[in-house]
C-alpha cells in the first residue's frame, strides 16, 4: 500500500480577474519550490489559469487550494478548485467541447486535463463543482 501524504501550502479565494492572477502566481511559486521543470511549471500554471477563470466566469467565485503531495517516491502538487455555482448538468459533454464553443466551460476543462497528470471533476447541479488536478515532478 502506497504511503500518501498531503500538505496544504496555500488557499486563495478567487472572486475576480485579479484573483486568477494571484492563484497563478501562488501555484507558480510552489511549483518552482517543488522543483518542476520550466515546461511543467508552465503547463500547471496554465491549467490553473483555465480552471480558476471558470470559478469567476461560471460560478461567481470559488476557492483554490494547493497541496504538496507525496505518493510512494513521487512528489507533486495537487490543486483543488471548489465553487458553489450552478454545477454542470452533463460533465461528459462539457469535457468533450473544444475551443469552437466560446464561453463554454469545456474550454477550460478539456485543455486543463491534457496539461496535468491526474484530473477529477465532481459536479452537482444546483450545489457546485469541485475540480482536482495533480501534477507529478
Amino acid at each position: 500500500m502506497e504511503n500518501k501524504t498531503e500538505m496544504n501550502v496555500g488557499e486563495i479565494s478567487v472572486m475576480s480577474d485579479e484573483d486568477v492572477i494571484l492563484a497563478r502566481q501562488r501555484v507558480r511559486l510552489q511549483a518552482q519550490e517543488t522543483g518542476f521543470t520550466l515546461l511543467n511549471q508552465t503547463k500547471l500554471v496554465t491549467a490553473v489559469s483555465e480552471l480558476a477563470r471558470n470559478l469567476v466566469v461560471h460560478a461567481r467565485g470559488g476557492k483554490v487550494s494547493v497541496f504538496k503531495t507525496k505518493a510512494g517516491d513521487k512528489t507533486g502538487l495537487k490543486v483543488v478548485f471548489e465553487d458553489k455555482g450552478p454545477g454542470i448538468p452533463d460533465v461528459e459533454r462539457a469535457m468533450q467541447e473544444g475551443f469552437s464553443t466560446i464561453g463554454s466551460m469545456g474550454l477550460g476543462l478539456k485543455g486543463a486535463k491534457r496539461l496535468v497528470d491526474e484530473f477529477d471533476i465532481k459536479s452537482f447541479p444546483g450545489k457546485g463543482t469541485t475540480v482536482t488536478i495533480t501534477k507529478w515532478l
Partner: peptide, 14 residues
Amino acid sequence: KKEVVITLIQLGMV
C-alpha cells in the same frame, strides 16, 4: 517562449 508554445499546442489551442 518555447514552453508557452508547447503548452498552447497541448492545450489544443490553434
